[in-house]
Amino acid sequence: MSPDQADANPPRKLIAMANQIATFFASQPGGTQAEQVADHINDFWDPRMRARICAYAAADGAGLEPLVLAAIPSIRVPELQD
């Protein structure tokens, strides 16, 4: 599969992973759950994984938990040269 072809498919695993993370932080106290989800993803996901989930959220977003969607704006997508 080429990366372009891959991009055409919804990132099934990333969606599931993001939802799992959101499920955990949804149970945590305080009003900052969306930030906590974004922080976790920023800390543990490679930038290309972050770029993909953000692109997917922007394009379609189906299947993502509301808390993930709330976190998307705080997920950093760095400019990647290579």
Binding site: M1, S2, P3, Q5, A6, K13, D43, F44, W45, D46, P47, R48, M49, P78
Partner: peptide, 18 residues
């Protein structure tokens, strides 16, 4: 400064050609 791929992410990325 950016985190890299974990084993399962590497394998996923490999299947996707990245």
């Amino acid at each position: 400064p950016e985190p890299g791929l974990r084993i399962n992410n590497m394998l996923d990325a490999a299947v996707e050609g990245r």
